[in-house]
Amino acid sequence: MRVCIVDDDPFVTTSLATILAAEPDVAVAGEGHDGNEAAALFERERPDVLLMDIQMPGTDGLAAAERILAAHPDARIVFLTTFSDDEYIVRALRLGAKGYLIKQEVATIAPALRTVMSGQSVLGDEVLDRVDALVSGLAASGAAALASAPGAERTGTTSPLDSLSERERAIVEQVAEGLDNKEIAAALYISEGTVRNHISAILQKLALKNRTQLAITYYRAR
């Protein structure tokens, strides 16, 4: 498989290139150090897999992935990062990334790339733990929201979002797209204070703790 590696630390890209080049079925097709280079590298090399960091100066990995996948929906992008941040995980999976690995798990990279080439997605152990925790929390909060939603018992509601008003659902959709309060206010022609009040009410209504859980609830309900 042909692999391109993008990380803002040249030492990391060189080290990963050395490790992967030692694998009999891996050829390193190129290296880059920011999101813009990642997009250009992908267009030039069309690798089987793009292995990329998330936090990079300028255009980050998530923005680069969004650009690449918009032009090439079948692109195989695997994130390799030091951060198992809930928001990053949600955004990466929403974009359509094929994997999310943690840099400390170096020995798992080559096997993970083979798994991706076989058509499956991969998550590092630490990431799986975070996803399991998020999903478990959502399952519990979703059940509570359904039980308390007005008319839920009568109408057979199957989604916690069914208890929201049209305006609230519009705000949830914007949150899931990654917009902040100022951007949501501009998009919906309301004040930031109104957005904050709506989000607080929505979180309370759905028994959720934060915007990340709200975004996951939205995508699970689609």
Rank of each mutant, 00 (worst) to 15 (best):
M1T: 11
R2H: 12
C4I: 07
V6F: 01
D7K: 04
D8E: 12
L16R: 07
A17M: 12
A17W: 01
T18P: 00
A21V: 08
A22E: 15
A22L: 14
P24W: 08
A27Q: 14
A29H: 03
G30Y: 00
E31N: 00
H33W: 04
H33I: 04
G35R: 01
N36D: 13
E37A: 13
A39D: 01
E45G: 02
P47M: 08
D48H: 14
V49P: 02
L50I: 10
L51M: 09
I54C: 07
Q55W: 10
P57D: 15
G58E: 15
D60H: 14
L62M: 09
E66T: 13
H72C: 07
P73D: 07
D74P: 06
A75W: 03
R76T: 02
R76C: 05
V78M: 08
S84L: 00
S84F: 04
D85Y: 06
D86P: 04
E87V: 10
A92R: 02
L93S: 04
K98M: 12
Y100N: 05
Y100L: 11
Y100S: 05
Y100A: 04
I102Q: 10
A107I: 09
I109L: 03
A110F: 04
P111L: 09
P111E: 13
A112I: 02
L113N: 04
L113V: 09
G119T: 10
G119M: 09
S121N: 13
S121K: 13
V122K: 03
V122H: 04
V122Y: 03
E126G: 01
E126A: 12
E126Y: 03
V131D: 03
V131W: 05
D132R: 13
A133D: 10
A133L: 09
V135L: 15
V135P: 01
S136Q: 13
S136E: 15
G137H: 06
G137A: 06
G137W: 05
L138G: 05
A143K: 11
A144C: 08
A145V: 06
L146H: 08
A147G: 02
S148E: 15
S148P: 00
P150Q: 03
P150R: 00
A152M: 11
T155Q: 14
T157G: 07
T158Q: 15
T158K: 15
S159Q: 10
S159I: 12
P160W: 05
L161W: 00
L161I: 14
L161T: 11
E168W: 05
R169H: 14
V172K: 02
V172P: 02
V175W: 01
V175L: 09
A176Q: 02
G178T: 09
D180M: 12
N181Y: 07
N181K: 12
K182C: 00
I184G: 03
A185K: 04
A185G: 08
A185V: 13
A187E: 12
S191N: 04
S191M: 07
E192C: 03
G193A: 10
G193V: 13
T194D: 03
R196C: 01
H198G: 00
I199T: 01
A201G: 06
A201E: 07
L203S: 01
L206T: 06
A207D: 09
T212K: 03
Q213V: 01
Q213R: 01
L214C: 05
T217Q: 11
Y218I: 07
Y219N: 12
R222E: 09
